[in-house]
Amino acid sequence: MNEARLAFDPVIHAPARLQIMAVLAGVQDAEFAMLRKTADVSDSVLSKHLSALSEAGYVRLRKAALDGRQRTWASLTRTGRTAFRDHVAALTALARVAATGDNAADDPRLLPSLA
């Protein structure tokens, strides 16, 4: 078998980051407070994860006024969108194997998780 390994992305691996990416994948852009609410994380956690995602080139951050106050808006970059799609596909494949009890031991893409 020469199938490619599942594309798990260490940058998106943290659950909070996956949630942030999932919200941003559904919108063109989102404001900081809205992201905090939908991803269900604190201000500081969101800030830290957004910085990490931005440094990885997955998220674009910009400041813009809303109701007279400067706010932070985030959006996914093209690279981020691709990385998110691949990571979710890999997670889904892994979860499906677990749910159906397929021949996981025969699948070379899953070997590390069985070790």
Partner: peptide
């Protein structure tokens, strides 16, 4: 780095919960 089966299922469930909150906020 590869998550375990359980971690993968939990991550997907948390992600779907966020997406559901997004859909409700976007009404």
């Amino acid at each position: 780095m590869q998550p375990s089966f359980t971690e993968a299922a939990e991550a997907l469930a948390a992600m779907r919960a966020s997406q559901a909150r997004l859909a409700q906020a976007a009404d």
